[in-house]
Design a protein around this nucleic acid. Structure first.
Lengths: 328, 328
DNA sequence: CTGTTAGCGCCTTCAT
DNA sequence: ATGAAGGCGCTAACAG
């Protein structure tokens, strides 16, 4: 294959060990003179270190793995940017693997890939881990952390928004705007996120002594099409004046459906979305949102992984805020 | 660290060599009986193979690396999906690395990371490689291919749309709609893509005996803000009735700017965008686009890499088509 | 400051 | 069908 330190050693007239020391910058273990010789030889030969060999012997890696579900919204980009920025500062290389959408096999495969390479840490972004993979993840003995998706009990450590608060504040905002008939659209009740947000929605309503009707909640899976369907349902079957959309894309679907039925936003119907990605600002009307701190999730995620090497991490919440735009 | 084949060998009462053969599924090299014993022991111990060791000795990898520039549009998602789907079929694992935006250092770092691990192939998606990294890429002796971004001379092999045709057909479409004063907005003249599309734009105009004025072309970098600025420029300084937007995001910027100035789309101003991602369908008005085959680029990219292991690949174009929507 | 030695975990001839 | 032995490229004591 390629050039090895032996080749360099020969050319520079030193031992492989010395070459290794120079190339690893183990300062104070060699003279500048030999160092120069070695570096020259390395460059001349076009040497590329063999990381497999290095990691095999050192039992260490400076690779941080990010396992991510198929991107639904652009939230993931922000998280990844946060990860990337922070990782660079810590001199870590990050590799990203896709694990599909609720696909246990792909999840397993991605996990195995990174575990077999004994990366120094694993960040799971927007991954709804299939329980059958729990053991695999745990037994790998590699620090890991979930981002963006939390858990009810203490299944695994995570960093996410406080999704109960997300649901609560979105609803509360609409309430304060004077709405009393408020829908909750396109969230997936099978996910922890969906459940928590729904609970927040209920609580906000109940705090205002409002009893939601059953069909105010229209389930979905956070998608554009779900938003479309939700709004069609609302206009046909309910007398709502506002709704919480489970994602930016769902909100866009709702807006488009509303528009095609001749509804004015926000006069006839107000929508607040959850996420607050750039989509909210480029749509017309611009979409009011509960804005999550995706970038910060990435930053904190890396910092947490780096901070310790063993043991469970403490789960945490990143801030959320209401960004008022034109759809409410 | 972890469990090794030696541990399994001991537990199963066989030699490490046998364990290796069983676990690598080298059929016909062992009896079913011992195989069963070995597999049982492996599972019981929670064995995870050490890929570093495997690749070190076999000098082979089944990891395909994707180096990608910071995502500007959602085109990259489609490419990655194509890559992922195809890679799975070929039993390859794919890892994705970010290389920032025109950042020679990050590019270099990403390249080194994957080269040092001697991946079996490198796909460079939307990467405008800094010339100082050319040598690194070439000398690594790893099959590679650029996706989505092409080159003028034969610098490197690539798969992309025919960007001259992209510019030509976008313009020609507007021409056939009856427009004679057509702008070309927000493309980066420093990129090959920008240059080719501009050339196509000119040619289409000249084929219709139209001489474009200098300020019909408004440079940018394919962004939303560039679209905004371009439209502001056009309405103030020109008498255009239509324009080609360099990307979906740029088109959205143009539309929003037009709307805020009270222009009707497409009656007062028509826009055709380049890319054709989902953004085109969720915007109102929906945006007519030159639609690229991003998914196919990913598929073909993997297939090409897998097809051979040495030598330069043949550059190719993937199809483009006009998708007419509401903005023209 | 530098060379020698002994592996890291695995695969792969070569024997048996 | 299985075991023993050597080595992939590199680092980390241990000597000097």
């Amino acid at each position: 294959m390629g050039i090895t330190i032996k080749d360099i050693a020969k050319l520079a007239g030193v031992s492989p060990a010395t070459v290794s020391r120079v190339l690893a910058n183990q300062s104070d273990f060699y003279s500048e003179k030999t160092a120069k010789k070695v570096r020259q030889a390395a460059k001349k030969l076009g040497y590329q270190k063999n990381t497999n060999a290095v990691e095999l012997v050192t039992q260490k890696s400076h690779v941080l793995a990010v396992i991510i579900s198929t991107i639904q919204t652009n939230a993931a980009d922000q998280i990844i940017n946060g990860i990337q920025e922070t990782a660079i500062k810590k001199n870590l290389d990050v590799i990203i693997l896709y694990a599909g959408e609720k696909n246990a096999d792909l999840q397993k495969r991605a996990l195995e890939t990174v575990i077999e390479r004994s990366v120094m840490g694993i960040l799971l972004v927007a991954i709804d881990l299939d329980p059958q993979n729990d053991q695999l993840l745990k037994s790998a003995n590699i620090p890991f952390l979930f981002l963006s998706i939390g858990f009810l009990k203490n299944r695994f450590p995570f960093i996410s928004s406080d999704d109960f608060q997300v649901g609560y504040q979105a609803t509360d905002f609409l309430l304060r705007k004077g709405h009393t008939k408020i829908g909750f659209a396109a969230a997936d009740p099978e996910t922890v996120i969906g459940q928590l947000r729904l609970a927040g929605y209920w609580k906000a309503l109940s705090d205002h002594h409002i009893t939601p009707q059953l069909n105010w909640v229209y389930d979905g899976e956070f998608t554009y099409d779900d938003g479309l369907a939700a709004m069609a349902h609302y206009t046909k079957k309910t007398a709502l004046t506002a709704a919480v959309a489970s994602s930016d894309l769902a909100a866009i679907g709702m807006l488009n459906q509303a528009q095609s039925q001749g509804l004015r936003i926000p006069e006839d119907f107000a929508v607040i979305s959850i996420d607050g990605t750039f989509l909210c600002s480029i749509m017309r009307p611009q979409i009011t949102s509960v804005t999550q701190s995706f970038h910060e999730m990435g930053v904190k995620g890396v910092e947490t992984i780096v901070s310790q090497t063993r043991g469970q991490f403490q789960s945490r919440h990143t801030p959320i805020k209401i960004t008022e735009r034109q759809s409410t």
